[in-house]
């Protein structure tokens, strides 16, 4: 080791040069725009893929998509979904979910239920502000889930699209779940195109 290097090291040590170097970095940051968000006055832009609160969806004509197949219930890793399915009395021989509960306190927001749903009746939204004083309100029932679905329908559609659950084409637009076993009546519509 040469003398000059030693001398430099000594000087650095005496001058606390590494501190000065670090302070330089710190001081330059005084002129950077802060990255902090002033939530709730400012809000983050949330990507379309975001896995927020779950919602139940309707078709464009207002009919419930859910057919009560209970697949979301079995797909859920945290067992937070409960579906009670039954026969629709007004539309004989149709199955539907008479009750649908998601215990959002148990939910892990993995999105498996959406992936499982064979009719795309479930979707996740960007909604994340539902803090409450009453824990009981965090058991989302069917009504609440449909309300979320109506309010955040655009989020839900974007979510399904972003996660490859739906494509933005005619087939998905026309898609309706068709109950093949219903009693044929004169008013019964013919099966949709994708089934013929």
């Amino acid at each position: 080791m040469s003398v000059s290097v030693l001398a430099k090291q000594l000087l650095d040590a005496v001058m606390f040069r590494e501190i000065w170097n670090a302070m330089k970095v710190t001081f330059t940051h005084m002129f950077h725009r802060p990255i902090t968000f002033q939530y709730p006055r400012e809000e983050r832009t949330i990507p379309d893929t975001h896995r927020g609160a779950l919602a139940l969806l309707r078709y464009d004509d207002g009919a419930e998509r859910c057919v009560g197949c209970d697949l979301c219930e079995v797909a859920c890793p945290s067992h937070c979904i409960k579906v009670v399915s039954t026969e629709d009395e007004s539309l004989p021989l149709r199955r539907y979910a008479s009750e649908f509960y998601i215990d959002i306190t148990k939910c892990v927001f993995c999105g498996y239920c959406v992936e499982a749903c064979p009719v795309n009746a479930l979707a996740m939204t960007k909604m994340y502000e539902y803090s409450t004083h009453d824990k009981r309100t965090l058991l989302f029932d069917k009504k609440r889930l449909y309300e979320i679905g109506e309010r955040f329908i655009e989020d839900a559609k974007k979510y399904l699209y972003a996660h490859n659950q739906e494509k933005n084409d005619q087939m998905f637009h026309d898609y309706r779940y068709f109950f093949p076993q219903s009693v044929l009546k004169p008013t019964q519509p013919l099966p949709p195109k994708h089934l013929t």
């Binding site: 949330i46 990507p47 893929t49 975001h50 896995r51 892990v108 927001f109 993995c110 999105g111 996740m124 979510y159 972003a162 996660h163």
Partner: peptide, 9 residues
Amino acid sequence: DELCGARLT
């Protein structure tokens, strides 16, 4: 978050 919908989980 943009990739998969969650930041941590």
